[in-house]
Structure formats: structure tokens, C-alpha cells
């Protein structure tokens, strides 16, 4: 079963929940893979001691054919590109890689067969295992590039390359394409929020997205007591299960700041992760969910 930990707003505690939830599930007898899908700012590995090995993630981009290879005044590739990523200059195509969606329609359209795709590295995926046996997969986007969804998908593919009972996905903030790639066909979303007006504004967007994507969602409240929003009442209104809360406590923040796993360094927090884990288990049992291939 695939459980995405998401939030809309940044800094609500996604990585905190994803790492501790994964470790809790692993320690209670599940085989768990944690996939860090926040490829812009991947932080899960900072909290887990797992030696990682990297493999490149590539996308296919067309290569400019050699001079003289293109038929005279041919613009077939440019005309075929739906994204405006090709222009013809001086009798040859020029590729704007930032606009390319890697569909390959240009190469199919090339009447001379001289336009080919070649792989370009856009990021890396790293995989390893902690001493507890938890498998960790991390996606990292190359700084300056815009291919976050491709790296997320590569990390998720690597995440299911070995069998596990639960795959925990640490989502990026926001609600756009990289989040969609993380939530796609997930079995459950754990939406982490705080009780501020800002947290609620962004939580609403995530709930809307989960409904559209048909991913069932539960809400986990972090930093309870900081903010005016009655999150339990809001969840009741929206018919969303609220799976516990963690009160605001400077010791929690200090623990996170020191890079420690809250489960180990702050025992009062264990209950919260146990509650979230119980919700995950209940959901899995009700669906009879298996890890999708």
C-alpha cells in the first residue's frame, strides 16, 4: 500500500511525519520503503542513517542533426512539437530543452530520420537501507532544472523495485505537478497541517486535489495550540478523519533542529505516530490493499 504524506503548505511537518511513521511501521513488523519525493528539497535522509547509492535519472531530448542532414526547408519537427520546444534556424532545428516534454513526436515526424533523442541527466535517485531494515529511496532534482515530476516518478519506480508492505511517500509542498506525481494512484494521503489560517488555506487545496485524484485522505494536526483554527471541527464538517495531534512544544522543534528522529528523542511524540500508523493499518485492512506493481 502506498501512503503519501502531503500538506500544501511548506514546513507543516511532512518529513517529520513521513520519517517517523516509516520507522514506526518498520519497528512494528512491517517491511517499509520510504520514498522522498520532495526532489527540490529532499531532507528525509538527514534523519535516517542509511548508506545510499545513486543512479542517474534521465529524460530524452532531441539532438540537433549534423549540418546538411536536414532536407531543404523542412520544418516537420518544429510543426510536430506541441510545446514549442523546437525552432528551425539556418536549416536545422534548435532545441529549447526547458520546453521539451520528451514525447518524441518530433523524431517520429522527421521525414529524413535524422532527428534522434538522447538521454540527458536531470537528477538522481539514491537507495539504501537503515540498520532497522527500513529501505530509503531519495529523489534529487538537478538544481536549475524543471523536471521534478520525472525525478519523482523515477524515485517511485525504484521504491517498488523491491517488495514491501507499505511505501511511505514524502511529498513536496505545493499542489502542482510534482505533488500530482507523488499522489498518483496512492492508496492514502496523510495531510499534515497546523491550526493556522495559512495551514487551513493550503489544506483545503490539498483536500480538493485528493478528492479529484480519488485518493482517500486523513488529517494529522501538528503544532496544535499554535493558531486559531478549530481543525477537529473543520475535519468533522469535511468528513475527514483526524488522526491525532502533536501539541506545539519547543522541545520538538529543537529535536528536529538537531536532526534527531522524534520517536527516539522525544518519547511523548510516539503516541502521535502510533495513531497515524494505526490509521494507515486500518485503511490497508479495509481495502485489502497490496503493494501495487
Amino acid at each position: 500500500m502506498h501512503v503519501a504524506v502531503a500538506s500544501g503548505k511548506g514546513g507543516t511537518g511532512k518529513t517529520l511525519v513521513a520519517t517517523n511513521l516509516a520507522v514506526h511501521l518498520q519497528r512494528t513488523g512491517r517491511r517499509v520503503t520510504l520514498v522522498d519525493c520532495d526532489v527540490d528539497a529532499p531532507n528525509a535522509a538527514l534523519f535516517l542513517d542509511a548508506p545510499l547509492s545513486a543512479t542517474p535519472v534521465t529524460v530524452a531530448v532531441p539532438v540537433v542533426p549534423p549540418e546538411g542532414a536536414c532536407p531543404d526547408s523542412c520544418t516537420a519537427c518544429r510543426d510536430a512539437c506541441p510545446f514549442g520546444a523546437l525552432r528551425v534556424l539556418g536549416g536545422r532545428p534548435v532545441v529549447f530543452a526547458d520546453l521539451c516534454h520528451h514525447c518524441g513526436l518530433c523524431t517520429t515526424a522527421c521525414p529524413a530520420g535524422v532527428l534522434r533523442m538522447q538521454p540527458v541527466e536531470v537528477g538522481r535517485v539514491h537507495a539504501g537501507r537503515t540498520g532497522d531494515g527500513l529501505r530509503l529511496v531519495v529523489g534529487t532534482l538537478e538544481v536549475g532544472l524543471t523536471e521534478a515530476p520525472a525525478v519523482v516518478r523515477a524515485a517511485r519506480r525504484l521504491g517498488v523495485s523491491e517488495a514491501s508492505d507499505v511505501v511511505v511517500l514524502d511529498a513536496p509542498p505545493g499542489a502542482a505537478c510534482a505533488v500530482v506525481a507523488t499522489l498518483h494512484r496512492a492508496d492514502l494521503a496523510v495531510l499534515v497541517t497546523d491550526a493556522t489560517a495559512f495551514g487551513l488555506h493550503d489544506l483545503r487545496l490539498m483536500v480538493e486535489l485528493c478528492r479529484e485524484m480519488e485518493v482517500p485522505a486523513v488529517v494529522a494536526l501538528n503544532r496544535a495550540g499554535l493558531g486559531d483554527v478549530d481543525v477537529p471541527a473543520w475535519c468533522r464538517e469535511e468528513d475527514l478523519p483526524l488522526v491525532g495531534h502533536l501539541p506545539f512544544d519547543r522541545r520538538v522543534a529543537a529535536c528536529y533542529a538537531d536532526g534527531a528522529l522524534l520517536l527516539d528523542a522525544f518519547p511523548p511524540a510516539r503516541l502521535w505516530f502510533a495513531e497515524i500508523a494505526a490509521a494507515v493499518e486500518r485503511h490497508g485492512a479495509s481495502r485489502g490493499a497490496e503493494v501495487p506493481a
Binding site: 527540490d40 528539497a41 531532507n43 538527514l46 532534482l141 524543471t146 521534478a148 505545493g174 533542529a257
Partner: peptide, 30 residues
């Protein structure tokens, strides 16, 4: 947040960036 396409679009051509960080390994990494 992040360094991906919206972050790039927000940063192109500005005069200066004020980066807000916190004393956590995650924030320093990012």
C-alpha cells in the same frame, strides 16, 4: 519553496534574494 520551475521563474531577474533559513540540517541543506 524549492528550487524547481516556480522557484526559477520567481528568481529570474530580481535584484536580490533574501533567503529565510532556520537552524535545522534540512533548512541548511536546502
Amino acid at each position: 519553496p524549492g528550487v524547481g520551475c516556480p522557484a526559477i521563474a520567481a528568481m529570474v531577474g530580481v535584484d536580490a534574494v533574501l533567503a529565510v533559513t532556520e537552524p535545522t540540517p534540512a533548512a541548511v541543506h536546502d
